[in-house]
C-alpha cells in the first residue's frame, strides 16, 4: 500500500500555476530524490505533502488519510511526517536537548524523563550525544542540521521530507549529514528529498523524480534514470549539474 499518494495535484500562488497535475505514489521504505531546476516546484510539492501549503485541485493522502492545511489536520499529520529545512530552523533560545525534547513533551505529552531518553537516543544516532546541553549557535552547520534531523526523528515519523538540507552547508560538512540520511535509509525510513546531490540520489536513493515546469517530467529507478535519461530536459539538467 502506498504511504504517500498524490493524485492530479494543482497548486496556484494567485494566478501563478506552480504545480500542474502531479501524480506520485510512494511506498513505505522508498528513498525518493526530487531533482529539477530552481523554480520547478520542488519545495512547493514537499510543502503540500505536509500541509504547509494548500493545494487547489486533486488529492493528497498520507497513509490513506487526506492531507489539508486545516490546523488540527496538520497537527495530526505532524505525528507521521517530519520535515528538515535548508536552513535548519532550530530554536535558538533552547539547548540542543531542549530542541529535541520540546515536541515529544508538549505534543506527545511524554514525561520529561521519557522525552529526555528519546532525545539522547536520537542525538546519539546522529552522532551528537555530547552536544545535549549546547546551544545551536555554538554548532557548525552540519551539526545543526543533524540536530534538526534528531528533532524530527524524536516524533517517530513515518516519512521524512528534506528540502535541500545540505545546500546551505560548507562542502566539507555535507558528507556528515548525508551519512546520517544514508543510515536512516538503511533502517527503512521513508525519505522524500529535494536534492542536488546526484551521487547520493544514485547510490542511496531508490527512485528519482525529475520535476520540470511544475510537472513530474520523468521518473524511475535512480540508477537507470540517471545513467539513461529519456527526455531532453533531464539530459540538459544533468549536463548543468554535473
Amino acid at each position: 500500500m502506498s504511504l504517500v499518494n498524490l493524485h492530479q495535484v494543482h497548486k496556484y500562488y494567485g494566478d501563478h500555476h506552480v504545480l500542474k497535475g502531479i501524480d506520485l505514489d510512494i511506498k513505505a521504505g522508498e528513498v525518493v530524490s526530487i531533482i529539477g531546476r530552481s523554480g520547478s516546484g520542488k519545495s512547493t510539492l514537499l510543502r503540500c505533502i505536509n500541509g504547509l501549503e494548500q493545494y487547489q485541485k486533486g488529492g493528497i493522502t498520507l497513509d490513506g488519510k487526506e492531507v489539508t492545511t486545516d490546523d488540527i489536520q496538520v497537527r495530526r499529520l505532524a505525528l507521521s511526517v517530519g520535515m528538515i529545512f535548508q536552513n535548519f530552523n532550530l530554536f535558538p533560545h533552547m539547548t540542543v536537548g531542549e530542541n529535541v525534547m520540546l515536541a515529544p513533551t508538549i505534543v506527545l505529552k511524554k514525561s520529561k524523563a521519557e522525552a529526555e531518553a528519546t532525545a539522547r537516543a536520537m542525538l546519539e544516532k546522529v552522532g551528537l550525544a555530547e552536544k545535549f546541553d549546547s546551544f545551536p549557535e555554538k554548532l557548525s552547520g552540519g551539526q545543526q542540521q543533524r540536530v534538526a534531523i534528531a528533532r524530527a526523528l524524536a516524533m517517530s515519523p513515518k516519512v521524512l521530507l528534506c528540502d535541500e538540507i545540505t545546500s546551505a552547508l560548507d562542502p566539507e560538512l555535507v558528507g556528515e549529514v548525508l551519512k546520517v540520511l544514508e543510515q536512516l535509509a538503511k533502517e527503512g525510513m521513508t525519505l522524500i528529498l529535494v536534492t542536488h546531490e546526484m551521487n547520493f540520489a544514485r547510490d542511496v536513493g531508490s527512485r528519482v523524480v525529475f520535476m520540470h515546469q511544475g510537472k513530474v517530467w520523468e521518473q524511475g529507478d535512480s540508477k537507470t534514470l540517471l545513467s539513461n535519461p529519456q527526455t531532453d530536459e533531464l539530459k540538459q539538467f544533468m549536463g548543468a549539474v554535473l
Binding site: 505532524a78 517530519g82 520535515m83 529545512f85 536552513n87 515536541a103 508538549i106 516524533m155
Partner: peptide, 20 residues
C-alpha cells in the same frame, strides 16, 4: 522558519507563541 518548524513538529498556534 520558526513558525514552520513548530507547525511541522505538531505544536498548536498557542504552543508556538508560548514556547517559540
Amino acid at each position: 522558519g520558526q513558525w514552520e518548524a513548530s507547525r511541522c513538529l505538531g505544536l498548536s498556534f498557542l504552543q508556538t507563541l508560548r514556547f517559540i
